[in-house]
Amino acid sequence: MKIAVLVKPALDTSQLRVKEGRVVIEETPLKINDIDRNAIEEAIKLKGNDKAYAISVLKWPPLQKRIQEAENLLREALAMGLDEAYLVADEGLIGSDQSATAKAIAAVINKVGADLVLAAEASIDNYTGQVPPRVAAELGWPLITYARELRVEGGKAIAKRDLEDSVETAEAQLPAVVSVTREINQPRIPTLLAIRAAMKKPVNKLTLADLGIKPDVKVELVGYKPVVIQRKRVIIKDGTPEEKADKLLQYLRQEGVI
């Protein structure tokens, strides 16, 4: 089964750079969106003798520096076991909304072909979960979101959808788009040998012109403001457990919260 995996080069939010009350996107490193590793793992399990490939669309500036960074990240995905990667990088996608991202992804899928598209439930930097449904709409394919279990049987994807207060069993005819949760599997850590082998696998770079897409901007960014966390940060580290417990309770009583 031929599988496309959507792998987002996401901002590493644990290393978000803030200077003089401003978020400095350009200096914040990228990483593979965490849950996308689960999608990659699932693809490697399901692909059989066919190929599984990554599609990444660059969203964060500065473009030139990010292309190199994203290529390095894609080597990690290849080391996990994907066969090749497609990286869409274009100034027109920086700051565009997700409809152009989905169009670009769908265009790659139409070009390369796929029986199944795997993605993650959400990305760490945006956390919207909208790209997989948008890709399904763009391709006109069935869609299953929030899969915590997945199997493919008789040309169908069968998944357990993890909703807030219930679990649904969903079935869809292939080709289909499926987004997975973190609980679906444990992503593998590539061996040294696999890392070396990944250096030889192809990373294909594409622009919007290659895909015949024109972006248009429907959402304008007015600005980012860091959320300032002002906590007292009083640390109680000396004394016996008994003394520490007394101190904590005393502080909490002073605050009037207990």
Binding site: D97, Q98, Y127, T128, Q130, V131, P133, Y146, K218
Partner: peptide, 18 residues
């Protein structure tokens, strides 16, 4: 979020969550 993403693409509209 599931139907929002799907409809937005059909409507060629932005989808802003949360």
């Amino acid at each position: 979020k599931t139907i929002g993403g799907y409809m937005s693409q059909k409507l060629n509209a932005p989808f802003i969550t949360d």
